[in-house]
Computed example of a mutant assay.
Amino acid sequence: MTPEPGSRRGRRNDPDRRDRIIDACLDVIAERGVAGVSHRRVADAAGVPLGSMTYHFDGIDELLHEALSRFSSAVSDRFARRMADAPDPASARDAIVSIVLDDVFGSPRELVLTHELYTLAAREPAYRALTAAWMARSRAALERHFDAETARLLDALIEGLTIHRALDDGDRDPREVARAVARLTAGA
């Protein structure tokens, strides 16, 4: 039997397999937490043979790092785009409110992934490097409209509001985010 063109030994080439595995890893983290990630669970979620895991990744740590790196880059890119699209400080304030209310809380999945990454970063230097790069990009995006000190405080406010809004049992008034941003940037 002659193999199909573009395949090895008659099997169809699957150039997107590695990306599907990384995306599936993020799904497993969102569903079960980092502690629930295993080669078998990720392979099942990606719909790939278990052997693909060790073919594409040296171990579960490499897979976790790549998945959370992809996630943090995507969120950071979205943050930077929002801030770049703001033509003036008033629009930048509105963008910050949207980041807190729409981007972070638009998806329970992203909220869980963010907190799982924070937890890993608290323990593991390799993940701390991811969060440090994420914060640096956030501050740089904020500095398009605000001085460096205000940008740093806004970044901390965004993180803090996100955590408080996620863990608070009661409904929160979305206007409090706009009020907090306005107070912090009043002198900026």
Score class of each variant (00 low, 15 high):
180 A>E: 00
95 A>C: 13
102 D>M: 06
59 G>H: 04
22 I>A: 12
43 A>L: 00
118 Y>D: 14
111 L>W: 11
28 V>M: 04
185 T>I: 08
118 Y>G: 08
155 D>S: 12
113 L>W: 12
87 P>Q: 05
174 P>Q: 01
98 S>Q: 15
59 G>D: 06
120 L>W: 03
76 S>C: 00
186 A>D: 09
93 R>Q: 11
88 D>E: 03
114 T>G: 13
49 P>S: 15
92 A>G: 04
50 L>M: 03
49 P>Q: 12
29 I>V: 12
65 H>I: 01
122 A>P: 08
85 D>T: 11
104 V>C: 07
64 L>Q: 00
71 F>L: 11
45 A>P: 02
29 I>H: 05
132 A>Y: 08
17 R>D: 12
75 V>T: 14
77 D>V: 08
77 D>W: 08
152 R>L: 00
143 E>F: 06
124 E>I: 09
153 L>Q: 09
152 R>G: 06
5 P>E: 08
28 V>D: 03
15 P>Q: 11
118 Y>H: 07
7 S>H: 01
156 A>F: 08
58 D>V: 04
98 S>H: 10
55 Y>M: 09
92 A>N: 02
98 S>G: 15
65 H>L: 15
95 A>H: 12
149 E>Q: 14
148 A>Q: 06
130 L>H: 02
93 R>T: 03
160 G>K: 06
144 R>K: 04
9 R>H: 11
153 L>Y: 10
13 N>S: 15
131 T>F: 10
